[in-house]
Every structure is written in C-alpha cells, then in structure tokens.
Design a protein around this nucleic acid. Structure first.
Length: 154
DNA sequence: GCCAACGTTGGC
DNA sequence: GCCAACGTTGGC
C-alpha cells in the first residue's frame, strides 16, 4: 500500500465537503498537470492519502482519505462546459484521469504547513520543496508516520 | 493583493 | 528546439 498527499482549496472543496458526499466518496477530478496525473495513475485501491488544504488561512493536513478506485478517465476533460475542459483529450484517447477517494477521518489536530516545514524528517516532501506546486504527490511510509505523530494521535 | 516560481504555449 | 510571454499556483 502506498501513501499520497492531495491538495485542495477548502473554499472550493475541503475535507468537510468530502465527509458530506454520498457514501463519503467523490471523484478527484480536474488534475491538469502531467506529473500529478502520473501519480494519480500510480495509485491503487487501498492506498491512503492526506487531505491538504491550500490557499487558505491555515494551510495544512486536515484529514485522511482512502483511494477506493484506481485511475480512470476524467470525463470533465470532454465537457465543453467544464472549467477543466481540454479539447486535446478525446474519448478514445483520454489525456486526464481521476481516482475516487473516500473520507476516512478528520485529524483531531491538523498538521500545519509551518509544522511540516519545521520538521527535519519531512524536508524531502515535495510540498515543502522550493517552488513546488504539485497537487498530487507521494508520501513515504516514514513521512506518513511522522505527520501522524505531529497530530498527537500516534 | 502581491509576487516568486513554475508549467505551458506558440512564434520563429 | 529555443525562449519570451503568459497563466496559474499558493504562501504570505
């Protein structure tokens, strides 16, 4: 099983929105960056991911989600009405993919970006690397455990 | 709102 | 293939 981190702007879609979804499950669609897409495609059912809130007053890790469906074509790429529309992606040759994620839990104590930056064991996280804007990134088992420790949950 | 950093686009 | 221009991300 692998670990990941998924960014989202809570004003658009936060961890609490996911908890309110039917079956607490939603498509993680709209990813339009090739590196992030490749990570999406590497995800397997049963993987876990941190739900990270970005572009907000207190950026950080707020919850844990389960990957409940591996990558499949993102239909918003084919929808001219969608902000994620990409005419270069076609039905028989899809360019963009999404996974399904299910709410697992909210962290009792979120782990802030500044905490993450202050933690030596997390220095290699793409999240805190200079200029990094990846919205989907891998998290090593050690990093995963380190972040959970920071929540005080163990 | 500012701005640094980055990815993408498109002319050549 | 180069690279300037542009748009986006995201912390502050």
């Amino acid at each position: 099983m692998a670990y990941w981190l998924l960014k989202s702007e809570p004003d658009m879609f936060g961890i609490d929105d996911l908890a309110k979804c039917q079956r607490r499950t939603e498509h993680w669609d709209g990813v339009r960056n090739y590196q992030a897409r490749n990570y999406l495609r590497a995800m397997r059912r049963g993987d876990q991911a941190f739900f990270y809130h970005s572009s907000c007053a207190a950026p950080g890790v707020y919850g844990v989600v389960d990957i409940v469906r591996a990558a499949y074509p993102d239909p918003s790429a084919d929808d001219p009405q969608s902000p994620y529309y990409d005419p270069r992606s076609t039905g028989d040759n899809p360019r963009w993919f999404m996974v399904d994620v299910r709410f697992q839990r909210r962290l009792k104590r979120p782990v802030s970006l500044s905490q993450i930056k202050q933690t030596r064991a997390l220095r290699k996280l793409p999240l805190v690397q200079r200029g990094n804007r990846l919205s989907v990134m891998p998290v090593s088992p050690t990093e995963w455990a380190t972040i959970l420790k920071l929540t005080g949950e163990h």
